[in-house]
Each structure stands twice: as C-alpha cells, then as structure tokens.
Amino acid sequence: MSEAEAPVAELVAVRKEYTAGAVTALAGVSLQVGRSTFLSLEGPSGCGKTSLLNLLGLLDVPSSGSVRWNGRDAGRLPERERARLRLAGVGFIFQRFHLLPTLTAAQNVELPLRAIRRPAAQRERRVAELLDRVGLTARAQAYPHQLSGGEEQRVAVARALANGPGLLLADEPTGELDRASADTVLDLLVSAHRDSGAALVVVTHNPEVAARAQRHLVMRDGRILSDSAAE
C-alpha cells in the first residue's frame, strides 16, 4: 500500500495500561482512520476514548501494539520526532479549550505557525484567514478570559487548523458549550474536515455529532464494541 493509499493513522493491537498494568485503558484495539474520514467515538466514561485519541495523536505511547502514521510506525518514536509529526500533522481540540491565558486569540492561533517557523508575514495572513473563518476577526486581540466558551472553542479550532493538518482530533469539543455554540463549533469542524480533506475524529456524547459522522465507533472497557462502517 502506497503512502497515499495508507490510512492517515492506524492502531494495530494496541494496549494501553496505567499504574504498572493495574489499569487497562485499551485492551488490544485495532483501528484504521482513513483520509477524509469523519469518525465519531462514543462510549461511557473510562472506556478508553481519550486514551485512544491520545495514541492516535502521538501524545502518548502504547504499552504494546503499534501506532502507524501514513503507513509508518510512529508510536515509539522519540518525543522530539513525535512532536514534529504532531506539529505538522495533527490538530487538537480539547473539551476545556486549553487556550494559553497569556496570549491573545490571534497569538493562540499563531502558536503552531511560530513553532513551525513560518515567516511573520505568512503567519499574519494565515491567522487573519483562520480568525475570519471562525468569525472572530473582531476578537483577535482579546485574551481568553475576555472570550465566551463558544468563542474560546472557535479559537481552538482555528489553532488546530493553523498548519493544515491531515488529522483533526477533537475530545468532546462541544461538551462545555451551550446548544448554539456547540452547533457553531460542530459546523466549523465539519466544514474544515470537508474543505481541507483532513480526517476528523471526534469523541462525543452528543448524538447530533455522531449523526453527522460517516463512521461511528462505540467503545466499552477498552475495546471497540461496534464500528458502524464495519457493519
């Protein structure tokens, strides 16, 4: 399989254990995330959704099994290499937004662009474009504490899209938002996925999110209970 045909990310018989094996978060999970896939991930608390997301995004290393990126085993690369892959290839959106409190909305969006050493003029253009896309041009100079929850999450979406990643990972992105804000954020994510062709994996309890996904996974006790695409 060529790199172009390979899944953007793949877990092969992955186990993830914590506290020296006392807690098993993932018990031999295998999963392929294809290019341009919108995949929703559902399941009760503690079933391993976030652990799976962290492994897909190279934030964590598996206890066993392998994590493949574009056909390449990336799960056990040194942290420096994984950081480089994350910077260029993954956009994260967290339930709690995780904006840097001392940076403005524009600076938060600019963070990945700075890290990848884009020239200042390019950064400025890209930040303006992304803030316009999420409807926050007027709030560019606002600090996170001056933004509403919905606005914060929109900034987080803009930040996740900054480097044009091939994989967007969202961990309950609407979990702390009101209905209207949740709809806006979801629309943004879906349109970003559609427009950029990036794969989108969303952990959610929201049935509306799941309903819009092309593929729906349900997890329990560290295993994938059902995979709608596989059915």
Binding site: R80, A83, R86, L87, A88, F92, T102, L111, A115
Partner: peptide, 16 residues
C-alpha cells in the same frame, strides 16, 4: 502544567 502540556501537544519543540 496545562499551558506547557498544550504547547507540547501542539508540537512546540523542546528548544522553544
């Protein structure tokens, strides 16, 4: 912790 972890999650290099 969280801001530092966020920077690292985004991929900000160790030297930065």
């Amino acid at each position: 912790r969280a801001p530092i972890a966020l920077r690292r999650a985004v991929g900000v290099p160790a030297r930065s």
